[in-house]
Simulated scan of single mutants.
Amino acid sequence: MKNKFLIIACWSIVSILFGAGCKKGPQFREFTYPAQSASGINYNVGFPGMNVTIKGTNFDTLTGAVKVWFGGIQATTVVSCRDTQIVVQVPATAVSGKVGLQVWTTKTDSIGSFTVIPAPTYKSISATRGNPGDVITFTGLNFLPDVSAIKAMIGSSQAQIVSNSATQVQFKVPNSVSGTPVVKFNDYPLPGPFFFVGNEQKITGTLIGHSGSYGNNANTTIAAAVDGNLNTYVDAATASGYVGYDVGAGKSAKLTVVRYAPRSGQAARMVKGEIRGSNDATLTSYDVLYKITTAPTVGVLTETAINAANTYRYIYYYSPDGYCDIAEIEFIGTVQ
């Protein structure tokens, strides 16, 4: 009998404790999110992989709270979200149909329609060198017919489009430095091979840099930075290191573009890295031409225009504390 009363008493205490724990305390807050309202999407025709922008209100700023469907297929990549705009990537398996949107618990079955067409593909370019004003032909498949949906670039400079068809876009070389030619269809980028403007060239010379490598690995010396292989990399023996070129006695280089790629898995080590120019053989005196402030993308060459006012015999990449972990670097400009 005592055991029975003991069990009842214990359950009573547990019930009181857990019952009290379920009540709303003074710090308990409930959130009611306002219903999202979409006013439309920027493109109604496109292809998998391109970004689409949804305009509206009450979208909040958390991408994890957003779901978008294209023809019933949910997008896997919400690129960004702010209160009045959502940028989402059309999924690889998207089909034509309604575009659905859900933000938090508010779902709209249709905010518009989207027609899926085959993505454009690159085939060839008529030249990889030219002067400002030259007409270049960019060839491929599935190009959009509407010229207003097309933008041609060389590096960061926009080019004038001369003509376009389903398989070609012709544009004039802008008055700019060298760069990668990119034709965008509804902001979907289609790059071609690097394009040299005027007499600019890839700058080379005698390879200079720190000696040795971490663990004396022959595969991770400074030579790996200029071997044309994004899968090899430099790994210095000490935290600081550098790699670049001496263009030669009596010569000087004017740098206009630099292209670089990080070691896989160590992209953050390129942050604070510097592109330098010097006319001092000891490199004690130098100019910082560019400083890397964000981790570059692995597996591709990040391209940056350099506004160098002077010319230099020595141009190089310097890593203050990242073990010079770089997969590849290219210097573009003119040599006198």
Results as ranks from 00 to 15, higher is better:
Pro120Leu: 02
Thr128Cys: 10
Asp109Thr: 09
Ser156Gln: 11
Ser156Val: 10
Asp134Pro: 04
Asn142Ser: 00
Gln168Met: 12
Val182Asp: 01
Ala94Asn: 05
Asn164Thr: 13
Val116His: 03
Tyr122Phe: 15
Lys98Gly: 02
Gly133Glu: 09
Thr115Leu: 09
Val183Phe: 08
Thr167Phe: 10
Val177Gln: 04
Thr106Ala: 12
Lys107Tyr: 13
Thr121Glu: 13
Val88Ala: 07
Val78Asn: 06
Val183Gln: 02
Phe114Asn: 01
Val103Ala: 05
Val99Ala: 03
Thr115Asn: 12
Ile154Ser: 00
Ala149Val: 09
Val90Thr: 05
Lys98Ile: 06
Thr84Ile: 11
Ile117Leu: 13
Val173Asp: 00
Gly133Ala: 08
Val103Glu: 02
Asn164Cys: 09
Pro118Phe: 10
Leu101Glu: 01
Ala119Met: 07
Ser148Glu: 14
Ala94Ser: 09
Ser80Asn: 13
Pro120Gly: 03
Pro174Gln: 04
Thr139Arg: 12
Ser148Ala: 14
Ala159Arg: 04
Ile111Cys: 01
Phe143Val: 02
Arg129His: 12
Thr106Trp: 15
Val162Gly: 04
Val90Arg: 00
Arg82Val: 14
Ala119Asn: 04
Pro132Ser: 00
Ile154Glu: 03
Thr180Cys: 06
Thr121His: 04
Trp104Val: 01
Thr93Phe: 11
Ala127Arg: 13
Asn142Lys: 08
Gln158Phe: 10
Val99Phe: 04
Val116Cys: 06
Ser124Glu: 13
Thr106Lys: 13
Ser113Lys: 10
Thr128Ser: 14
Val162His: 05
Gln168Ala: 04
Val90Glu: 02
Gln158Ser: 13
Thr128His: 07
Ile117Gln: 11
Ser113Arg: 08
Leu144Trp: 07
Val90Asn: 05
Ala94Met: 09
Val116Gln: 03
Gln168Ser: 10
Val87Pro: 03
Trp104Pro: 03
Asn175Ile: 08
Thr167Gly: 01
Asp109Phe: 06
Ser124Asp: 15
Asp83Glu: 15
Gln89Ile: 05
Gln168Lys: 12
Gly100Trp: 08
Ser163Asn: 11
Ala159Pro: 09
Ile125Asn: 01
Lys98Gln: 13
Ala92Ser: 15
Pro145Gly: 06
Val162Ala: 06
Val182Ile: 15
Ile154His: 04
Val147Tyr: 03
Phe138Ala: 02
Thr137Glu: 13
Val79Ile: 15
Ser148Tyr: 12
Ser126Val: 01
Arg82Leu: 12
Ile86Glu: 05
Val162Asp: 07
Ala94Gln: 08
Val79Pro: 02
Ala92Tyr: 11
Pro132Asp: 02
Ser157Lys: 15
Gln160Pro: 00
Lys107Gln: 15
Gln89Asn: 04
Ala127Asn: 12
Thr167Lys: 09
Asp146Asn: 13
Ala127Glu: 12
Ile150Val: 14
Gly100Cys: 05
Gly133Lys: 08
Asn175Arg: 11
Ala127Ser: 15
Val135Pro: 00
Val87Gly: 04
Thr108Ile: 09
Gly179Glu: 11
Ala127Leu: 09
Thr84Lys: 06
